[in-house]
Nucleic acid binder design. Structure first.
Lengths: 206, 206
DNA sequence: CGATTCTTTGAAAACAGTCAATCTGTGTGG
DNA sequence: CCACACAGATTGACTGTTTTCAAAGAATCG
């Protein structure tokens, strides 16, 4: 299982055997069956988690009882359990497996040790954080400036290896729309395109 | 100007005189008048930017010509110019000043040098990135699961020092709603107290 | 002042959400 | 192999919210 992570790291920096030995010595591998929880609501324990195989999601239960999916993670991606909310918020993050999965975890303490000890690991992680920030910013922009159908198309393009492995209603939740709206966006893409054309023609007339 | 940043850093880690000397030696201070651009559309130059005084915003022009505000930054906050988009996207990030402002900038190259040289600076910046990630994740959740009134109320609570310094239509843009919708959300009796506060502050102080 | 800029309001249209019923595919047990 | 349950997806009718367009009011600034 660890070789997946070793391969991943080799694609993101230069590491030697000593580095890998140290990293491996504080890694905890975990196997999950589909529907198993990695983190239940209320758990306080915080980890860094890397997905070697399978697919996981993080989500919350809103005040009205509906699920809001924060993120998906397939193989060679990270999944966070560290989204803190204001005091008084009723729910926190939940993580579970959408497929039989394998993950590697590090306690935050050990992860900090690795960052302080291995310069190229530190460098890699900073780049990773900055790229994650950009990814989230792009998602915000997409929600703010695109309609249902555009957001779905963007999702397909951004996650070509993911979109056909998860049920549509989860994609709808991730995109912030009802499953019915996503269903309709998928079924009549021509309508929306036509409609946009009409708007731009109208816009050009004055 | 640099003393604001020195004070900020002292609140986020332990630094000695040598550290500050090194940091100062690669800092570039800039004064901006209201409406000045810090980064125009199409500029390739990337920096890390810290706001010492005033208020800035980053935004994009969408394909239909409307502005989407990504972030605001007041004193003791950072403002990013590094949101990369897919190839073919027509527009990129723009940053301008909403008030007369003072900022400190570092080239990405010098910033990397600081991170590699000063361990506590590296530690501080990583915490900062992780907190920024959480902030963006919270914003995504807020957009996905709250309506117009709730999002406005949350904005007021989250940015008490910011909300009465910028025009409402910019808040609307940041929250992903039309200015008219925000205006109506504010006029609901439940929220008029904010309205009154703002008016009295404006009337008394400015 | 006048000229901007910003905010509010009204009415109509577009859009997404909700509820309920139906359809589809998959896997299980008899 | 069939019948069945079940999870997921779709569709229609209806409701509610937000956007859009247009106009008019405030506030601000030179």
């Amino acid at each position: 299982m660890f070789d997946v992570f070793e391969n991943y790291l080799n694609n993101h920096g230069i590491f030697d055997y000593e580095d890998f030995d140290l990293i491996r010595s504080v890694s905890f591998c975990k196997k999950l069956n589909k529907k198993d929880y990695l983190l239940r609501e209320g758990d306080i324990c915080r980890h860094k988690t890397f997905v070697c195989k399978g697919c996981l999601r993080s989500y919350r239960i809103d005040k009205d009882g509906t699920e809001s999916i924060l993120n998906f993670a397939i193989e060679r991606r990270w999944i966070n359990d560290d989204v803190n909310f204001q005091i008084g918020e009723p729910s926190s993050t939940i993580i579970d497996a959408l497929e039989d999965s394998e993950v590697i975890q590090w306690s935050n303490e050990n992860f900090r040790m690795l960052l302080a000890t291995i310069p190229s690991f530190n460098l890699f992680y900073r780049k990773h954080l900055e790229e994650s920030l950009n990814e989230k910013q792009r998602r915000i922009i997409s929600i703010l400036s695109n309609n249902a159908q555009e957001r779905y198309e963007e999702f397909i393009n951004n996650f070509p290896k993911l979109y056909n492995r998860i049920p549509l209603y989860m994609i709808a939740s991730y995109l912030g729309m009802s499953r019915e709206t996503l269903s309709r966006a998928r079924s009549i893409p021509q309508y929306t395109r036509y409609h946009h054309n009409r708007e731009s023609i109208l816009g050009a007339t004055y």
